[in-house]
Design a protein around this nucleic acid. Structure first.
Length: 235
DNA sequence: GCGACAG
DNA sequence: ATCTTGTCGC
C-alpha cells in the first residue's frame, strides 16, 4: 500500500475546482468505442473515508474481464484533501484513486468508478475527470440518481431508460438484475454509452453492482480499517 | 430564496 | 460516504 500525495496544483477551494473543470472538460473523448466488453482487463476503483481521523483509503482491483478473476490489487492511504461538494466529487476522490492506480503493475485496461461522468451539471464528473487525467477509458456507474430525471426502466435485466439533460442523453438508468433498482451509467472518457452499458452488464452476473465496484469497495474499507488499527486518535 | 444533490 | 438491529427471503 502507498501513501497518497496530493497532485501538484490540486484545487484548494470550490472556485478553483470549478475553473479546473472548465479547463479540462474539452479534453474528454467521446467518439471512441472503447475496449470490447468481456475482453482484456477491467479495473474497479473506490474510496472509503474516516472523517473522524481525516483519513481516506482508495483501492484499485484489476479483473480479467472475461472470467472476472482478480488479477491484481492496490491500495493507498492518506489525508482527505477536499470536502464533499455535489458536483465536485472528483476533487475529493481522485488523489487517492490516482495513487492506487499508480502502483499497479499491469495497465488497468478499462476503469469503472463509482459516480458519474458525462451525467454531471457541467458534463465533467468523476469518471470523465479520471479519464482525462490518466488517458484511460473510464465509465461511471452510480448507485443513485444525481440531478437528472429519468423514467423507470422495464423490470427485466438489461432494460434501460435515458438520463436526460434537455434532449441530450447524458447517461442511462440500467437494470442489472430483474426487478431490482437500476444503476446509473454514464460515459467517462474514450467509451461510448452503449459500450459502457454492455460492460456494466458483463460485470453484473450476480449482483446489482458491478464486481469491480464490489471488490474495490471491500478492499478500500479493509485498507482503511488496517490503517486505523492500533492508532489511537490521541492528538 | 428554497430544496435537491454522485460519494 | 458513514452511523446501525432486526428482518424478510433464497
Amino acid at each position: 500500500m502507498t501513501i497518497i500525495e496530493t497532485p501538484a496544483g490540486w484545487p484548494a477551494d470550490e472556485e478553483e475546482a470549478l475553473a479546473v473543470q472548465d479547463a479540462l472538460r474539452a479534453r474528454v473523448v467521446l467518439d471512441e468505442p472503447g475496449p470490447a466488453p468481456g475482453t482484456g482487463l477491467v479495473t474497479g476503483v473506490d474510496v472509503a473515508y474516516d472523517d473522524e481521523r481525516d483519513l481516506v483509503a482508495a483501492a484499485a482491483v484489476v479483473l480479467d474481464a472475461r472470467t472476472l478473476d482478480v488479477v491484481e490489487e492496490a491500495t493507498a492511504v492518506g489525508r482527505v484533501s477536499f470536502p464533499y461538494v455535489p458536483g465536485l466529487l472528483a476533487f475529493r476522490e481522485l488523489p487517492a484513486v490516482l495513487a492506487a492506480l499508480d502502483t499497479l503493475t499491469a495497465g488497468p485496461g478499462l476503469v469503472v468508478c463509482d459516480g458519474y461522468g458525462l451525467a454531471h451539471p457541467r458534463r465533467f464528473g468523476l469518471a470523465s475527470h479520471l479519464g482525462v487525467l490518466t488517458g484511460l477509458p473510464v465509465v461511471g456507474v452510480a448507485k443513485n440518481p444525481f440531478t437528472f430525471t429519468h423514467e423507470d426502466p422495464a423490470p427485466r435485466r438489461g432494460s434501460t431508460a435515458p438520463l436526460l439533460a434537455g434532449a441530450q442523453e447524458v447517461g442511462r438508468a440500467l437494470r442489472t438484475r430483474d426487478g431490482v433498482k437500476p444503476v446509473f451509467v454514464s460515459v467517462g472518457h474514450r467509451v461510448t454509452l452503449d459500450a459502457a452499458c454492455a460492460h456494466t452488464l458483463a460485470l453484473t452476473p450476480r449482483y446489482r453492482l458491478p464486481e469491480t465496484t464490489r471488490l474495490a469497495d471491500a478492499l478500500c474499507r479493509r485498507a482503511l480499517r488496517e490503517a486505523t488499527a492500533g492508532q489511537g486518535s490521541a492528538a
